[in-house]
């Protein structure tokens, strides 16, 4: 990948801004580091690295010509009918980003696995990042040994009994997340190992991502096992290993398969672009005269193609006529043209 060869200056700037924001958030959110847990410093560094990496890559990605075009068009489309589009956002986000019906329609097993991993990760992130940045901490209420209150920065919120269901859930949120993720990982693995088709299109990154999720979840669960049943045996060693896997995982985020978490919301932009295009003028095929896509998208493609090094124009046979563009051909006529061109070169069967 060209983008990997040397650092992109604008990307670096955006990345550094992200780092600054994380640092600022930590500083302010933890009430000037009062509530910052120094034991979690490794996690903080991992988070800072991930923030830089993700934002850097995102910035670079956004500047690729087709991405930039779509990004622009997506926002244009969104703004053109802001009220309606804003109103549509919650349901669009829910179906495209949260419930992920498009995966369910592909394969139910795959969807179940993805949902387990997805919600497991969300839950884990909601706990881990606030804790790491010192945004969240617990304090015991007065002299009651097992009554705690949740603090967001220095604002106290709900309190709970450690022995209650709510309390148990609160303290074991990460264990629950780990179990969800592990269940998902197992379904994914089973599918991959049993389905020769899935195995064949396997990419190295697929297994790496699953292995990472597995490692983080298992080492996290071991901590609970150690404290609950082994009276803290091996705790500090396990703690180090867990921290290491999490930090590695965070550092892997910008490079690997999991980057799709940040790309995927682009799908919302596509949805708006599509909606906008569907009411706009259609493209008309230069060969069959049929409508085949939106004129806007074809125009956008014709603008992007030269930027990525393609020239599909042709001189029209009419003298003084403007150049034509092969991209004005509908996909069906492209296939027909290709077939006719080939047939003409082997004896001309019509």
């Amino acid at each position: 990948m060209a983008e990997a060869n040397r650092l992109d200056r604008r990307g670096v700037v955006w990345g550094l801004i992200a780092v600054a924001l994380v640092v600022a958030l930590t500083f302010l959110g933890s009430d000037r580091l009062v509530w910052f847990d120094a034991a979690l410093i490794g996690y903080l560094f991992g988070t800072i690295f991930a923030a830089f990496g993700v934002v850097y890559r995102y910035a670079v990605w956004l500047r690729r010509p087709p991405t930039a075009m779509l990004n622009r068009r997506g926002w244009d489309a969104f703004r053109r009918n802001k009220g309606r589009n804003l109103a549509a956002l919650p349901s669009l986000a829910a179906t495209q980003l949260l419930t992920q019906g498009f995966i369910r329609r592909r394969s139910r097993a795959r969807w179940i696995a993805h949902q387990l991993v997805f919600w497991g990760c969300i839950l884990a992130a909601l706990v881990t990042f606030p804790l790491t940045l010192g945004l969240l901490h617990f304090e015991s209420v007065g002299q009651q040994a097992d009554r705690y209150q949740v603090y967001l920065s220095r604002v106290g919120t709900l309190s709970f009994d450690a022995g209650s269901i709510a309390g148990w859930t609160m303290f074991h949120a990460l264990d629950i997340a780990a179990v969800l993720v592990l269940a998902g990982v197992f379904v994914f693995l089973r599918r991959r190992l049993n389905d020769p088709g899935a195995l064949a299109v396997e990419r190295g990154g697929d297994f790496l991502a699953l292995a990472g999720l597995f490692a983080v979840s298992v080492t996290g669960l071991f901590l609970t096992v150690s404290s609950a049943w082994l009276e803290g045996q091996f705790y500090s060693a396990l703690n180090t290993i867990h921290a290491l896997t999490v930090i590695l995982g965070l550092m892997y985020l910008p490079f690997g398969k999991l980057f799709h978490i940040f790309q995927r919301p682009g799908n919302l932009g596509v949805a708006y672009y599509r909606r906008e295009n569907s009411v706009g003028a259609p493209a008309v095929c230069r060969r069959c005269g049929g409508e085949f896509a939106s004129a806007q998208q074809i125009a956008d493609l014709k603008a992007v193609l030269p930027e990525v090094g393609f020239d599909y124009t042709f001189a029209t046979r009419v003298e003084g006529g403007e150049d034509g563009n092969y991209q004005d051909t509908c996909p069906r006529c492209r296939r027909a043209s290709v077939t006719l061109a080939q047939s003409a070169r082997v004896g001309g069967f019509g």
């Binding site: 799908n267 492209r334 296939r335």
Partner: peptide
Amino acid sequence: CIGCSNCVLACPFG
């Protein structure tokens, strides 16, 4: 894949 169909429309072979 975010389902934009750019590839579908740009592929010269359809």
